[in-house]
Nucleic acid binder design. Structure first.
Lengths: 128, 128
DNA sequence: CCGTATCCTACCAGATACTG
DNA sequence: CAGTATCTGGTAGGATACGG
């Protein structure tokens, strides 16, 4: 549980500070599945099933939870077409698109440098 | 535990793939304390105690663990002056500096947008 | 000053089953 | 199709004590 000061408009973010909301938000944004979900929202809006397939290994539960967190932060918007069968789309907001650039920059860097980064990890075996 | 394909030099990173090493590496790099520790390594090398004070709330255990992980990935280098009392410095490598830019970009964005991101979180109380 | 080594717990997240 | 609900094990990480 985090506490905000009396007048939030006066504080400027500082992730190094224990009680700064930025730290809480960062932990949500930089979580394992959040990073991948935001990355997956490339260009066009995506549906629940699409994301489930694209982000390999994510469970329905974690996808829902992640999307709800992102929605709270106004990073994504949930658009329910109110049809039957259900058709729901998840859109990145303007802020979401801003954020996605930062995240993709990080993700692509890790992918590009993968082989050099992994050398120290002898615990990653080569066996089947 | 993650498994690498027989010939790692042939694979190109893809964080969306379940068994891609990039996903494992990303989880290490984007962990709560890793994000803050790398950010804290600004410009000059830092000592254990400095980092402990700068990254509020981190424990000695987690700092050590985080730095070891980063060292494995050649993101930081541990320089032991072999003096008594001990003097140890942690330096960012070239790759580390590259990575730090991405991370700082993310951290600063979260800080700058903190107040707008937090509105949906009614669970963050204003009381003392 | 810079760490290790243990113990211990809260929470994360996977598995599974059910619903409009 | 797009979720919810519940149970449960594993583990991240805090607290504490000790060591070179």
């Amino acid at each position: 549980m985090y506490r905000l000061p009396e007048d939030p408009s006066q504080i400027n973010g500082n992730v190094f500070h224990n009680d700064c909301p930025a730290r809480f938000l960062l932990s949500k944004i930089a979580s394992k599945w959040s990073l991948l979900t935001i990355d997956a929202l490339d260009g066009r809006p995506k549906r629940n099933g699409e994301l489930l397939r694209q982000v390999e290994g994510i469970s329905q539960k974690m996808l829902t939870q992640t999307l709800k967190d992102l929605e709270k932060m106004k990073i994504v918007v949930r658009v329910d077409m109110k049809t039957v069968p259900p058709h729901v789309e998840y859109h990145l907001t303007f802020k979401g698109k801003e954020l996605r650039e930062k995240i993709c920059s990080l993700d692509r860097w890790v992918e590009d440098n993968m082989l050099e980064l992994i050398v120290g990890h002898s615990d990653l075996s080569l066996i089947s």
